[in-house]
Design a protein around this nucleic acid. Sequence first.
DNA 1: CTAGATGCAAAGACTTTGCGCGACC
DNA 2: GGTCGCGCAAAGTCTTTGCATCTAG
Lengths: 128, 128
Amino acid sequence: MRMTPQRVAILRILSDDPSHPPAERIFEEIEQTFPTTSRATVYKTLDVLKEIGQLIELEFSDGGNRYDAMRITTHAHVVCERCGRIDDVELYEAAQLRARAAQHSKFQIKSERVDFYGLCPDCQPASN
Amino acid sequence: MRMTPQRVAILRILSDDPSHPPAERIFEEIEQTFPTTSRATVYKTLDVLKEIGQLIELEFSDGGNRYDAMRITTHAHVVCERCGRIDDVELYEAAQLRARAAQHSKFQIKSERVDFYGLCPDCQPASN
DNA sequence: CTAGATGCAAAGACTTTGCGCGACC
DNA sequence: GGTCGCGCAAAGTCTTTGCATCTAG
């Protein structure tokens, strides 16, 4: 794989941005440094990076998929249903959960996704 | 909410079908009993049922969202990356995981989604 | 030179919306 | 008769594809 400026930029945006941006947002950000970059390139690049395991695609149908730069530890996500913010939380039980799922389902498990949905601190009713 | 034949049919399809079908598949099945039913109705109905908590929408961007008729117990899913099959597995630790996520993130958690990805028994290399 | 990348535009898949008609209470 | 639901068609959003051009090795 060739490390083009566009690819470097996309990876950089992802690792600098903890908010797990959607493709459109990545496109907007990359436009600032490489104004000619097309959406097609963004999508193609995300695809490549996904394939080589540099990032994880979090599928969402409302507002588009979100992208998560690969980290060593398995982590879960907390998703704010109001503002769309997505934070990470550690998931210490991953191996355990995976083992149990494999045992019960007879599936051969390769990865997992754990999301919690609710309201982030900023969007919670200010009844406190 | 009015229980129209279409709505009954959709709920029935979902509870009879453990494969968590996508909207298109529900549409195809309902066509057999109500040939005039439109896609719009399917989507609108799924929306309503989701709102009143009768089903859960599992967001996927490839091949469309999948729908899961609500069950009492929280359960996780195992997704076959090859054939798209989705089975349920019990998730006994749900409350525990949720509590920890809430604590670490300060989010107010309302629900969760736990998916495991891998290969179903039929799609595993037959090396056994 | 040639394989891999880019960028444009068009196509595609899935979903939502607007609106008039019809059914239920 | 007013509200809610249906069905059609059109529009919308996000993503992918085809193809010509460009570029690094």
